[in-house]
């Protein structure tokens, strides 16, 4: 990133150049042959992002202030869609389910992922096999993972092995697929099965850049493994953890296929709410779209909190 220093927006520039500097750099950008080529090469990618992400996003925000009836007129209604959305009991259940699912699945995946990453960072026989199998569930389409696990959670049939094991262990004796809370719990387990190994591989990559002599030094100082983990490993692995956590949280926040399929279309989440409004009941199109904008804004808020809170603590 060395050439960033010549680009606009860098702080260390004489005060007079604040206005002229960037302009002069910009004209340079398009007269130099190689630079011009670079812009030509990134143009298709940028065009895709502008046309398929940025424009639809702005359009969605604009639409969220309209009352839309598909193939008919639309009229400006201000914040009415958002007011109606926040009063809708379905939106409440969507928000609640999504929050519970996100908090439970991400914390479970972080703790379990860290444990597995620590284990995989040791040298042992069969480590290659363990690491390879970790990647298998990650390649599964979530919708199909949900179908598979729904079969295993079926009550009273031969395929419902997980339901059978849970029932005979006495942990939970009611049909799991018949109750929203149990379904969300089941979905958390499925999500953890699918993503924990991947989380572990991300954390493992972070662990492997920690130099070995740091551990040797603390060992000489008489630190126990426990102290070593909290005082050395955790602070050093924090940047990798932040990336993995942020990614997983935003991913869980927009959960759709897993809950939709596991709950046989009946289990609500924010994305399911949007889908139902947009595709199923087109009378609720405006509400679904407003919820979509809500998902976008709340994702930004989550990212902001993560970077602000976890990011600064990593610097200290």
């Amino acid at each position: 990133m060395a050439e960033r220093a010549t680009g606009p927006g860098t702080g260390a520039r004489p005060s007079g150049g604040l206005v002229l500097g960037p302009l002069r750099t910009l004209t340079n950008e398009f007269t130099d042959k190689e630079r011009r080529l670079a812009y030509i090469l990134v143009t298709p990618a940028l065009a895709i992002i502008l046309a398929i992400a940025l424009f639809p996003l702005l359009y969605a925000i604009w639409l969220s202030f309209q009352e839309i009836i598909i193939n008919q007129s639309s009229s400006f209604v201000g914040l009415q869609n958002y007011v109606e959305m926040f009063q809708d009991p379905d939106f409440h259940s969507a928000l609640r389910n999504t929050t519970v699912f996100t908090v439970l699945s991400v914390s479970l995946e972080l703790v379990a992922g860290m444990a597995i990453a620590l284990a995989l960072s040791r040298a042992f026989k069969g480590r290659g096999i363990a690491r390879a199998t970790a990647l298998a569930p990650w390649a599964f389409p979530p919708a199909i993972a949900a179908v598979m696990w729904r079969l295993m959670f079926q009550d009273q049939v031969g395929g419902g092995i997980v339901a059978y094991l849970i029932k005979s262990s006495g942990i939970y004796t009611h049909p799991i697929l018949g109750n929203d809370a149990a379904l969300i719990g089941a979905a958390v387990l499925v999500d953890a099965w699918k993503t924990t190994p991947f989380m572990a591989l991300l954390l493992l990559a972070g662990l492997q850049v920690i130099p070995q002599d740091v551990y040797e030094a603390t060992k000489v100082d008489g630190a126990t493994s426990w102290q070593q983990f909290w005082r050395v490993t955790l602070p050093l692995v924090r940047p990798a953890m932040l990336v993995a956590l942020l990614f997983r949280t935003l991913d869980a926040w927009r959960v759709y296929d897993l809950l939709w399929v596991m709950g046989n279309r009946q289990l609500n989440s924010l994305s399911v709410y949007v889908y139902n409004g947009v595709k199923i009941s087109q009378l609720d199109f405006s509400l679904g779209n407003a919820a979509a904008v809500f998902v976008f804004l709340s994702s930004i808020a989550i990212a902001f909190v993560f970077i602000k809170v976890l990011g600064t603590r990593a610097v200290e």
């Binding site: 050439e3 960033r4 992002i49 639809p56 942020l246 926040w253 994702s299």
Partner: peptide, 30 residues
């Protein structure tokens, strides 16, 4: 290649990875 907006362009492309797909299904559907 060297060009001034390299950092911003790269950030913009990578930011899409954090963009919730569900946010644009309504306008795309229309």
């Amino acid at each position: 290649l060297e060009f001034g907006l390299r950092g911003p362009v790269l950030s913009m492309i990578l930011a899409v990875a954090f963009f919730p797909a569900v946010a644009i299904i309504a306008p795309l559907f229309l």
